[in-house]
């Protein structure tokens, strides 16, 4: 019970500080919007294979803006030695990981709402004709990206070129999620359910399980000094 309370406070303090200082969300949403704009504008002339391209672009936009945000949630902790204070808090590193994971999940979810909305409006692709399916893909993709991003984000708290390095290092680990999520998104757009869709979905589930577990286990090793 105590764990849950501590977890709640760790999540809450991040959300409250974000609400007051607005350090992460505006920059992330700005980048997401801009990237979505550019991508959709370029899509105008494309006739064939639109769904395939849109599937990929949506996730690329989410990935780039999302990685920026995940880096910032950790970089934020550097001010006034918040990070050291957080690690002195009597919880195991696994709980810190889960708290950061939750915050990043919520952040990325907001980004997804914006990016998906923009793509629906600007690219004329029926992304939301099967809202439930799209929601499932978005959720699983979010969990996959967040688990990787949060795990490696802890590494680069104080490094100045951290966000570049983070994008660099997460890419090989996040590439399977990006591919699976894009492919699943394409199938949603093309309105193809069936075994292929389920296969990509189950891949996303397995990936998420692996990396959330890895995060709970390895986070301690990554953040100790």
């Amino acid at each position: 019970m105590l764990m849950v309370t501590q977890f709640y406070w760790m999540v809450r303090k991040d959300l409250v500080s974000e609400y007051r200082a607005r350090q992460v969300w505006p920059a992330m949403l700005m980048l997401g919007t801009l990237v979505s704009f550019l991508f959709s504008a370029q899509l105008d002339g494309v006739v064939e294979g639109r769904s395939r391209i849109v599937g990929m672009l949506v996730w690329l936009a989410i990935y780039f803006a999302g990685i920026l945000a995940m880096h910032r949630t950790f970089a934020m902790e550097q001010e006034d030695d918040c990070w050291d204070a957080l690690r002195l808090y009597p919880v195991t590193a696994s709980w810190i990981y889960l708290a950061k994971f939750t915050v990043n999940f919520l952040t990325l979810a907001t980004l997804q709402v914006v990016v998906l909305g923009l793509f629906v409006v600007f690219s004329n692709v029926p992304l939301l004709d099967h809202p439930l399916r799209m929601l499932t893909v978005a959720l699983l993709g979010n969990v996959g990206l967040t688990s990787v991003g949060t795990l490696l984000g802890g590494v680069w708290t104080e490094n100045r070129q951290g966000s570049t390095m983070l994008a660099f290092l997460t890419l090989p680990l996040a590439a399977p999620v990006l591919l699976a999520a894009s492919e699943a998104t394409r199938l949603v757009i093309d309105q193809e359910g069936g075994p292929l869709w389920w296969r990509w979905l189950s891949f996303l589930v397995v990936f998420s399980i692996v990396f959330v577990t890895a995060g709970i286990v390895l986070f301690e090793l990554l953040i100790e000094d």
Binding site: R199, S202, F203, V206, I209, V210, T213, A214, I216, V217, L218, E220, L221
Partner: peptide
């Protein structure tokens, strides 16, 4: 301990990989 955690993580990850292989 770290050892326990590593073992547990290893088991879960192995299971997930097997699951993937089965799929």
């Amino acid at each position: 301990t770290t050892t326990h955690k590593l073992c547990l993580g290893g088991i879960v990850i192995t299971m997930a990989t097997t699951c993937l292989a089965y799929m």
